[in-house]
Design a protein around this nucleic acid. Sequence first.
DNA 1: CGCCTAAACGGACTTTACCCCGTTTAGCGC
DNA 2: GCGCTAAACGGGGTAAAGTCCGTTTAGGCG
Lengths: 211, 211
Amino acid sequence: MNGSLVPLGKPRPERADAVRNRELLLATVREMLAEGGTGCVTMDALAERARLGKGTVFRRFGTRAGIFRALLDADERIFQEQVLCGPPPLGPGASALDRMVAYGQARIAFLLDHHSIARAALDRNQPVPAGEATITRVHLRMLLGQAGLGLPDLDSLAIQLTGALEGPLLLYLALPEPDTPPSPAAGRPLADSWSILIHRLLRTEPGSTAT
Amino acid sequence: MNGSLVPLGKPRPERADAVRNRELLLATVREMLAEGGTGCVTMDALAERARLGKGTVFRRFGTRAGIFRALLDADERIFQEQVLCGPPPLGPGASALDRMVAYGQARIAFLLDHHSIARAALDRNQPVPAGEATITRVHLRMLLGQAGLGLPDLDSLAIQLTGALEGPLLLYLALPEPDTPPSPAAGRPLADSWSILIHRLLRTEPGSTAT
DNA sequence: CGCCTAAACGGACTTTACCCCGTTTAGCGC
DNA sequence: GCGCTAAACGGGGTAAAGTCCGTTTAGGCG
Protein backbone atom coordinates (compact mmCIF):
# COMPACT_ATOMS: atom_id res chain seq x y z
CA MET A 1 0.00 0.00 0.00
CA ASN A 2 2.10 2.83 1.25
CA GLY A 3 5.40 1.11 0.82
CA SER A 4 5.90 2.74 -2.55
CA LEU A 5 4.35 6.03 -1.56
CA VAL A 6 7.02 6.88 0.95
CA PRO A 7 10.02 8.30 -0.92
CA LEU A 8 12.40 7.24 1.85
CA GLY A 9 13.28 10.57 3.36
CA LYS A 10 15.27 8.73 6.03
CA PRO A 11 18.04 6.33 5.09
CA ARG A 12 16.38 3.38 6.85
CA PRO A 13 12.64 3.88 7.18
CA GLU A 14 11.82 0.67 9.01
CA ARG A 15 12.19 -2.96 8.41
CA ALA A 16 9.20 -4.90 7.19
CA ASP A 17 9.20 -7.42 10.01
CA ALA A 18 9.37 -4.63 12.54
CA VAL A 19 6.24 -3.08 11.10
CA ARG A 20 4.49 -6.39 11.01
CA ASN A 21 5.35 -7.14 14.61
CA ARG A 22 4.31 -3.72 15.82
CA GLU A 23 0.88 -4.15 14.36
CA LEU A 24 0.64 -7.68 15.62
CA LEU A 25 1.49 -6.43 19.07
CA LEU A 26 -0.99 -3.59 18.98
CA ALA A 27 -3.72 -5.94 17.82
CA THR A 28 -2.85 -8.34 20.59
CA VAL A 29 -2.96 -5.57 23.16
CA ARG A 30 -6.40 -4.58 21.98
CA GLU A 31 -7.53 -8.15 22.38
CA MET A 32 -6.19 -8.33 25.89
CA LEU A 33 -7.77 -5.02 26.77
CA ALA A 34 -11.12 -6.28 25.62
CA GLU A 35 -10.84 -9.31 27.88
CA GLY A 36 -9.56 -7.78 31.10
CA GLY A 37 -8.64 -4.18 31.78
CA THR A 38 -5.27 -2.55 31.32
CA GLY A 39 -4.18 -4.39 34.41
CA CYS A 40 -3.90 -7.69 32.64
CA VAL A 41 -1.65 -6.33 29.92
CA THR A 42 1.68 -7.62 31.09
CA MET A 43 4.82 -7.40 29.06
CA ASP A 44 5.40 -11.12 29.46
CA ALA A 45 1.82 -12.05 28.75
CA LEU A 46 1.75 -9.80 25.71
CA ALA A 47 4.95 -11.23 24.34
CA GLU A 48 3.84 -14.79 24.88
CA ARG A 49 0.41 -14.23 23.41
CA ALA A 50 1.88 -12.59 20.33
CA ARG A 51 4.43 -15.40 20.08
CA LEU A 52 7.30 -12.98 20.27
CA GLY A 53 10.20 -12.47 22.61
CA LYS A 54 9.92 -10.10 25.51
CA GLY A 55 12.86 -8.16 24.19
CA THR A 56 10.96 -7.44 21.01
CA VAL A 57 8.10 -5.89 22.88
CA PHE A 58 10.44 -3.54 24.69
CA ARG A 59 12.32 -2.72 21.55
CA ARG A 60 9.08 -1.61 19.92
CA PHE A 61 7.60 0.41 22.75
CA GLY A 62 10.40 1.14 25.14
CA THR A 63 8.23 0.90 28.18
CA ARG A 64 4.90 -0.39 29.32
CA ALA A 65 3.42 3.07 29.21
CA GLY A 66 4.74 3.32 25.66
CA ILE A 67 2.37 0.61 24.55
CA PHE A 68 -0.60 2.60 25.69
CA ARG A 69 0.81 5.76 24.21
CA ALA A 70 1.06 4.00 20.89
CA LEU A 71 -2.50 2.87 21.27
CA LEU A 72 -3.66 6.38 22.03
CA ASP A 73 -1.69 7.89 19.20
CA ALA A 74 -3.87 6.30 16.60
CA ASP A 75 -7.09 7.74 17.99
CA GLU A 76 -5.34 10.93 18.95
CA ARG A 77 -4.46 11.54 15.35
CA ILE A 78 -8.07 11.25 14.33
CA PHE A 79 -9.07 13.59 17.11
CA GLN A 80 -6.42 16.04 16.06
CA GLU A 81 -7.64 16.00 12.52
CA GLN A 82 -11.14 16.92 13.62
CA VAL A 83 -9.66 19.84 15.49
CA LEU A 84 -7.44 21.03 12.69
CA CYS A 85 -9.73 20.66 9.73
CA GLY A 86 -13.09 19.37 10.84
CA PRO A 87 -16.42 21.22 10.82
CA PRO A 88 -16.62 24.61 12.51
CA PRO A 89 -17.42 24.63 16.13
CA LEU A 90 -14.47 22.35 16.78
CA GLY A 91 -12.54 22.91 13.59
CA PRO A 92 -11.62 26.30 12.12
CA GLY A 93 -14.31 28.75 11.12
CA ALA A 94 -15.77 29.67 14.49
CA SER A 95 -14.73 32.26 17.04
CA ALA A 96 -11.89 31.46 19.38
CA LEU A 97 -14.32 31.33 22.26
CA ASP A 98 -16.63 28.88 20.60
CA ARG A 99 -13.72 26.76 19.54
CA MET A 100 -12.30 26.62 23.03
CA VAL A 101 -15.60 25.53 24.47
CA ALA A 102 -16.05 22.97 21.73
CA TYR A 103 -12.52 21.73 22.21
CA GLY A 104 -13.07 21.25 25.92
CA GLN A 105 -16.21 19.29 25.34
CA ALA A 106 -14.59 17.11 22.72
CA ARG A 107 -11.50 16.57 24.79
CA ILE A 108 -13.43 15.55 27.86
CA ALA A 109 -15.39 13.06 25.81
CA PHE A 110 -12.19 11.76 24.31
CA LEU A 111 -10.47 11.32 27.64
CA LEU A 112 -13.53 9.71 29.10
CA ASP A 113 -13.59 7.26 26.25
CA HIS A 114 -9.93 6.47 26.61
CA HIS A 115 -9.82 6.88 30.31
CA SER A 116 -8.11 3.70 31.35
CA ILE A 117 -5.68 3.77 28.45
CA ALA A 118 -4.82 7.41 28.99
CA ARG A 119 -4.03 6.75 32.59
CA ALA A 120 -1.99 3.70 31.72
CA ALA A 121 -0.04 5.84 29.28
CA LEU A 122 1.16 8.01 32.13
CA ASP A 123 4.72 7.21 33.09
CA ARG A 124 5.87 7.41 36.66
CA ASN A 125 9.20 8.86 35.68
CA GLN A 126 8.72 10.96 32.62
CA PRO A 127 6.22 13.81 33.03
CA VAL A 128 4.01 13.16 30.02
CA PRO A 129 6.71 13.13 27.36
CA ALA A 130 5.17 15.44 24.82
CA GLY A 131 2.37 12.96 24.45
CA GLU A 132 -1.35 13.42 24.36
CA ALA A 133 -1.14 16.38 26.71
CA THR A 134 0.74 18.50 24.30
CA ILE A 135 -1.95 18.75 21.70
CA THR A 136 -4.26 20.36 24.21
CA ARG A 137 -1.69 22.84 25.37
CA VAL A 138 -0.68 23.82 21.87
CA HIS A 139 -4.18 24.18 20.61
CA LEU A 140 -5.38 26.19 23.59
CA ARG A 141 -2.34 28.40 23.25
CA MET A 142 -3.22 29.15 19.67
CA LEU A 143 -6.83 29.93 20.43
CA LEU A 144 -5.84 32.16 23.31
CA GLY A 145 -3.68 34.08 20.90
CA GLN A 146 -6.56 34.48 18.48
CA ALA A 147 -8.90 35.59 21.24
CA GLY A 148 -6.91 38.78 21.47
CA LEU A 149 -7.18 39.39 25.18
CA GLY A 150 -4.43 41.75 26.17
CA LEU A 151 -2.60 39.40 28.44
CA PRO A 152 1.09 38.70 28.69
CA ASP A 153 2.26 35.13 29.03
CA LEU A 154 -0.42 33.18 27.28
CA ASP A 155 1.85 30.18 27.57
CA SER A 156 1.35 29.80 31.29
CA LEU A 157 -2.33 30.34 30.90
CA ALA A 158 -2.48 27.60 28.29
CA ILE A 159 -0.67 25.25 30.61
CA GLN A 160 -3.04 26.06 33.39
CA LEU A 161 -6.08 25.53 31.26
CA THR A 162 -4.63 22.25 30.13
CA GLY A 163 -4.47 21.26 33.76
CA ALA A 164 -8.04 22.36 34.28
CA LEU A 165 -9.19 20.27 31.36
CA GLU A 166 -7.13 17.13 31.71
CA GLY A 167 -6.10 17.13 35.33
CA PRO A 168 -9.43 16.10 36.75
CA LEU A 169 -9.68 13.14 34.43
CA LEU A 170 -6.11 12.01 34.70
CA LEU A 171 -5.53 12.75 38.35
CA TYR A 172 -8.56 13.02 40.52
CA LEU A 173 -11.63 11.52 38.97
CA ALA A 174 -10.08 8.25 38.02
CA LEU A 175 -12.99 5.88 37.90
CA PRO A 176 -11.99 2.81 39.85
CA GLU A 177 -13.62 0.08 37.80
CA PRO A 178 -11.57 -1.52 35.02
CA ASP A 179 -14.04 -1.43 32.15
CA THR A 180 -15.97 1.78 31.73
CA PRO A 181 -19.40 1.23 30.31
CA PRO A 182 -19.79 4.04 27.78
CA SER A 183 -21.62 6.60 29.87
CA PRO A 184 -21.34 9.79 27.86
CA ALA A 185 -23.08 11.80 30.55
CA ALA A 186 -20.27 11.30 33.03
CA GLY A 187 -18.29 14.27 31.77
CA ARG A 188 -21.23 16.65 31.55
CA PRO A 189 -20.62 18.57 34.74
CA LEU A 190 -17.00 19.07 33.84
CA ALA A 191 -17.87 20.19 30.34
CA ASP A 192 -20.33 22.69 31.75
CA SER A 193 -17.89 24.25 34.13
CA TRP A 194 -15.32 24.34 31.39
CA SER A 195 -17.75 26.33 29.32
CA ILE A 196 -18.36 28.73 32.17
CA LEU A 197 -14.69 29.07 32.88
CA ILE A 198 -13.86 29.90 29.28
CA HIS A 199 -16.75 32.28 28.83
CA ARG A 200 -15.71 34.26 31.85
CA LEU A 201 -12.06 34.14 31.00
CA LEU A 202 -12.56 35.50 27.52
CA ARG A 203 -15.25 38.00 28.43
CA THR A 204 -13.97 41.48 27.55
CA GLU A 205 -13.58 43.95 30.37
CA PRO A 206 -16.63 46.28 30.72
CA GLY A 207 -15.03 49.62 29.93
CA SER A 208 -11.85 48.72 28.07
CA THR A 209 -11.45 48.69 24.32
CA ALA A 210 -8.12 47.00 23.83
CA THR A 211 -5.05 48.28 25.71
CA MET B 1 0.71 17.26 74.00
CA ASN B 2 -2.17 15.37 72.54
CA GLY B 3 -1.16 11.97 73.79
CA SER B 4 -3.19 12.45 76.93
CA LEU B 5 -5.81 14.59 75.25
CA VAL B 6 -7.15 11.77 73.16
CA PRO B 7 -9.59 9.82 75.34
CA LEU B 8 -9.08 6.63 73.33
CA GLY B 9 -12.05 6.74 71.07
CA LYS B 10 -10.68 3.64 69.39
CA PRO B 11 -10.12 0.47 71.43
CA ARG B 12 -6.45 0.17 70.49
CA PRO B 13 -4.84 3.48 69.61
CA GLU B 14 -1.43 2.17 68.52
CA ARG B 15 1.33 0.15 70.00
CA ALA B 16 4.42 1.92 71.24
CA ASP B 17 6.89 0.03 69.06
CA ALA B 18 4.77 0.75 66.03
CA VAL B 19 4.99 4.46 66.69
CA ARG B 20 8.71 4.26 67.30
CA ASN B 21 9.29 2.37 64.09
CA ARG B 22 7.15 4.72 62.04
CA GLU B 23 9.20 7.66 63.15
CA LEU B 24 12.42 5.78 62.66
CA LEU B 25 11.34 4.97 59.12
CA LEU B 26 10.32 8.51 58.32
CA ALA B 27 13.61 9.83 59.64
CA THR B 28 15.47 7.28 57.57
CA VAL B 29 13.54 8.23 54.46
CA ARG B 30 14.43 11.86 54.98
CA GLU B 31 18.07 10.88 55.25
CA MET B 32 17.91 8.92 52.04
CA LEU B 33 16.12 11.75 50.28
CA ALA B 34 18.86 14.14 51.29
CA GLU B 35 21.50 11.87 49.78
CA GLY B 36 19.92 10.85 46.49
CA GLY B 37 16.52 11.81 45.14
CA THR B 38 13.29 9.95 45.63
CA GLY B 39 14.61 7.45 43.17
CA CYS B 40 16.98 5.89 45.64
CA VAL B 41 14.30 5.31 48.24
CA THR B 42 13.68 1.63 47.80
CA MET B 43 11.54 -0.47 50.06
CA ASP B 44 14.37 -2.94 50.52
CA ALA B 45 17.02 -0.28 51.03
CA LEU B 46 14.82 1.60 53.46
CA ALA B 47 14.10 -1.51 55.49
CA GLU B 48 17.72 -2.51 55.61
CA ARG B 49 18.93 0.94 56.51
CA ALA B 50 16.40 1.22 59.31
CA ARG B 51 17.33 -2.29 60.45
CA LEU B 52 13.78 -3.49 60.05
CA GLY B 53 12.08 -6.13 58.00
CA LYS B 54 10.53 -5.28 54.70
CA GLY B 55 7.18 -6.50 55.93
CA THR B 56 7.26 -3.86 58.60
CA VAL B 57 7.76 -1.10 56.10
CA PHE B 58 4.78 -2.25 54.11
CA ARG B 59 2.67 -2.69 57.21
CA ARG B 60 3.34 0.91 58.14
CA PHE B 61 2.82 2.56 54.78
CA GLY B 62 1.00 0.09 52.62
CA THR B 63 2.76 1.12 49.47
CA ARG B 64 5.78 3.01 48.28
CA ALA B 65 3.67 6.02 47.46
CA GLY B 66 2.30 5.81 50.98
CA ILE B 67 5.69 6.66 52.38
CA PHE B 68 5.79 9.90 50.50
CA ARG B 69 2.21 10.64 51.38
CA ALA B 70 3.13 10.26 55.04
CA LEU B 71 6.04 12.59 54.50
CA LEU B 72 3.83 15.17 52.83
CA ASP B 73 1.16 14.92 55.49
CA ALA B 74 3.34 16.51 58.10
CA ASP B 75 4.03 19.63 56.03
CA GLU B 76 0.56 19.56 54.62
CA ARG B 77 -0.89 19.91 58.06
CA ILE B 78 1.17 23.02 58.68
CA PHE B 79 0.09 24.41 55.33
CA GLN B 80 -3.50 23.67 56.12
CA GLU B 81 -3.26 25.45 59.41
CA GLN B 82 -2.03 28.59 57.69
CA VAL B 83 -5.03 28.41 55.43
CA LEU B 84 -7.56 27.77 58.14
CA CYS B 85 -6.38 30.16 60.80
CA GLY B 86 -3.38 32.09 59.57
CA PRO B 87 -3.17 35.81 58.79
CA PRO B 88 -5.72 37.29 56.37
CA PRO B 89 -4.85 37.14 52.75
CA LEU B 90 -4.41 33.39 53.02
CA GLY B 91 -6.31 32.78 56.21
CA PRO B 92 -9.83 34.01 56.99
CA GLY B 93 -10.56 37.70 57.07
CA ALA B 94 -10.13 38.65 53.42
CA SER B 95 -12.54 38.49 50.51
CA ALA B 96 -13.08 35.19 48.79
CA LEU B 97 -11.33 36.51 45.71
CA ASP B 98 -8.25 37.59 47.58
CA ARG B 99 -8.15 34.35 49.45
CA MET B 100 -8.37 32.29 46.29
CA VAL B 101 -5.52 34.20 44.72
CA ALA B 102 -3.48 33.92 47.88
CA TYR B 103 -4.24 30.24 48.15
CA GLY B 104 -3.10 29.62 44.62
CA GLN B 105 0.15 31.40 45.20
CA ALA B 106 0.78 29.55 48.43
CA ARG B 107 -0.17 26.21 46.96
CA ILE B 108 2.10 26.65 43.97
CA ALA B 109 4.98 27.51 46.26
CA PHE B 110 4.18 24.50 48.40
CA LEU B 111 4.04 22.11 45.48
CA LEU B 112 7.20 23.55 44.05
CA ASP B 113 8.94 23.01 47.35
CA HIS B 114 7.69 19.46 47.63
CA HIS B 115 7.75 18.75 43.99
CA SER B 116 9.61 15.49 43.89
CA ILE B 117 7.90 14.14 46.97
CA ALA B 118 4.48 15.14 45.74
CA ARG B 119 5.07 13.33 42.50
CA ALA B 120 6.38 10.28 44.26
CA ALA B 121 3.23 10.28 46.36
CA LEU B 122 1.15 9.74 43.25
CA ASP B 123 0.03 6.18 42.92
CA ARG B 124 -0.36 4.46 39.59
CA ASN B 125 -3.48 2.55 40.57
CA GLN B 126 -5.32 4.69 43.03
CA PRO B 127 -6.32 8.14 41.74
CA VAL B 128 -4.93 10.34 44.51
CA PRO B 129 -6.77 8.68 47.39
CA ALA B 130 -8.13 11.74 49.15
CA GLY B 131 -4.58 12.85 49.73
CA GLU B 132 -2.97 16.20 49.25
CA ALA B 133 -5.25 17.02 46.37
CA THR B 134 -8.34 17.05 48.47
CA ILE B 135 -7.44 20.00 50.62
CA THR B 136 -7.25 22.17 47.54
CA ARG B 137 -10.54 21.00 46.19
CA VAL B 138 -12.35 21.41 49.49
CA HIS B 139 -10.94 24.81 50.18
CA LEU B 140 -11.62 26.15 46.72
CA ARG B 141 -15.12 24.79 46.93
CA MET B 142 -15.73 26.69 50.12
CA LEU B 143 -14.37 29.95 48.75
CA LEU B 144 -16.41 29.58 45.58
CA GLY B 145 -19.46 29.27 47.76
CA GLN B 146 -18.57 32.41 49.63
CA ALA B 147 -17.90 34.31 46.44
CA GLY B 148 -21.60 34.19 45.73
CA LEU B 149 -21.54 33.90 41.98
CA GLY B 150 -24.85 32.56 40.84
CA LEU B 151 -23.58 29.34 39.40
CA PRO B 152 -24.89 25.83 39.78
CA ASP B 153 -22.48 22.98 40.40
CA LEU B 154 -19.64 24.65 42.18
CA ASP B 155 -18.29 21.19 42.88
CA SER B 156 -17.24 20.59 39.31
CA LEU B 157 -15.79 24.02 39.10
CA ALA B 158 -13.74 23.37 42.21
CA ILE B 159 -12.43 20.15 40.73
CA GLN B 160 -11.53 21.93 37.56
CA LEU B 161 -9.72 24.70 39.35
CA THR B 162 -7.89 22.09 41.37
CA GLY B 163 -6.70 20.66 38.10
CA ALA B 164 -5.65 24.10 36.92
CA LEU B 165 -3.64 24.66 40.05
CA GLU B 166 -2.07 21.30 40.68
CA GLY B 167 -2.19 19.61 37.30
CA PRO B 168 0.63 21.59 35.73
CA LEU B 169 2.96 20.85 38.60
CA LEU B 170 2.03 17.23 39.03
CA LEU B 171 1.58 16.29 35.41
CA TYR B 172 3.20 18.49 32.86
CA LEU B 173 5.89 20.67 34.29
CA ALA B 174 7.70 17.93 36.14
CA LEU B 175 11.22 19.23 36.40
CA PRO B 176 13.50 16.42 35.39
CA GLU B 177 16.41 16.94 37.79
CA PRO B 178 16.29 15.09 41.08
CA ASP B 179 17.18 17.87 43.51
CA THR B 180 15.46 21.16 42.92
CA PRO B 181 17.55 24.07 44.10
CA PRO B 182 15.05 26.33 45.85
CA SER B 183 14.17 28.66 43.02
CA PRO B 184 11.07 30.48 44.25
CA ALA B 185 10.69 32.31 40.96
CA ALA B 186 9.94 29.14 39.05
CA GLY B 187 6.25 29.24 39.84
CA ARG B 188 5.79 32.91 39.16
CA PRO B 189 4.26 32.63 35.72
CA LEU B 190 1.79 30.06 36.94
CA ALA B 191 0.89 32.13 39.97
CA ASP B 192 0.28 35.12 37.74
CA SER B 193 -2.01 33.31 35.39
CA TRP B 194 -3.83 31.82 38.34
CA SER B 195 -4.45 35.32 39.58
CA ILE B 196 -5.78 36.38 36.22
CA LEU B 197 -7.94 33.32 35.93
CA ILE B 198 -9.51 33.84 39.32
CA HIS B 199 -10.01 37.54 38.85
CA ARG B 200 -11.85 36.98 35.62
CA LEU B 201 -13.80 34.06 36.92
CA LEU B 202 -15.12 35.93 39.92
CA ARG B 203 -15.68 39.22 38.13
CA THR B 204 -19.37 40.10 38.34
CA GLU B 205 -21.26 40.38 35.09
CA PRO B 206 -21.50 44.00 33.86
CA GLY B 207 -25.25 44.55 33.92
CA SER B 208 -26.60 41.73 36.02
CA THR B 209 -27.46 41.86 39.68
CA ALA B 210 -28.19 38.23 40.44
CA THR B 211 -30.34 36.32 37.91
C1' DC C 1 4.34 -11.66 88.28
C1' DG C 2 3.07 -14.66 84.69
C1' DC C 3 -0.49 -15.59 81.04
C1' DC C 4 -2.83 -14.52 76.84
C1' DT C 5 -4.10 -12.31 72.77
C1' DA C 6 -3.95 -9.15 69.35
C1' DA C 7 -0.74 -6.61 67.04
C1' DA C 8 3.82 -6.11 65.13
C1' DC C 9 7.77 -8.15 63.06
C1' DG C 10 10.80 -10.52 59.56
C1' DG C 11 12.13 -12.27 55.55
C1' DA C 12 11.34 -15.68 51.95
C1' DC C 13 8.42 -15.78 47.87
C1' DT C 14 6.04 -14.05 43.78
C1' DT C 15 5.27 -10.92 40.12
C1' DT C 16 6.53 -7.66 36.80
C1' DA C 17 9.01 -4.05 34.47
C1' DC C 18 13.10 -3.46 32.25
C1' DC C 19 18.19 -4.72 30.66
C1' DC C 20 21.68 -7.21 28.06
C1' DC C 21 23.80 -9.51 24.64
C1' DG C 22 24.41 -13.47 21.73
C1' DT C 23 21.80 -15.02 17.56
C1' DT C 24 19.01 -14.45 13.47
C1' DT C 25 17.39 -12.15 9.43
C1' DA C 26 15.81 -8.45 6.12
C1' DG C 27 17.23 -6.02 2.48
C1' DC C 28 20.86 -3.93 -0.27
C1' DG C 29 24.81 -4.22 -3.66
C1' DC C 30 27.00 -7.34 -6.65
C1' DG D 1 21.69 -16.23 -6.18
C1' DC D 2 25.62 -14.55 -2.55
C1' DG D 3 27.36 -12.15 0.96
C1' DC D 4 27.43 -8.36 4.16
C1' DT D 5 25.77 -5.31 7.69
C1' DA D 6 22.71 -3.08 10.36
C1' DA D 7 18.62 -3.94 12.45
C1' DA D 8 15.46 -7.05 14.77
C1' DC D 9 14.76 -10.99 17.65
C1' DG D 10 14.82 -14.05 21.87
C1' DG D 11 14.74 -15.06 26.36
C1' DG D 12 17.42 -15.44 30.57
C1' DG D 13 18.86 -12.10 34.22
C1' DT D 14 18.15 -8.27 37.58
C1' DA D 15 15.79 -5.18 40.68
C1' DA D 16 12.17 -3.61 43.08
C1' DA D 17 7.13 -3.71 44.64
C1' DG D 18 4.04 -6.10 47.05
C1' DT D 19 2.21 -10.70 49.54
C1' DC D 20 2.15 -14.38 52.99
C1' DC D 21 2.58 -16.59 57.02
C1' DG D 22 5.13 -18.33 60.88
C1' DT D 23 7.37 -16.05 64.93
C1' DT D 24 7.91 -12.56 68.43
C1' DT D 25 6.37 -9.16 71.67
C1' DA D 26 3.70 -5.28 73.88
C1' DG D 27 0.78 -4.53 77.29
C1' DG D 28 -3.72 -5.52 79.69
C1' DC D 29 -5.65 -8.72 83.25
C1' DG D 30 -6.11 -11.94 86.91
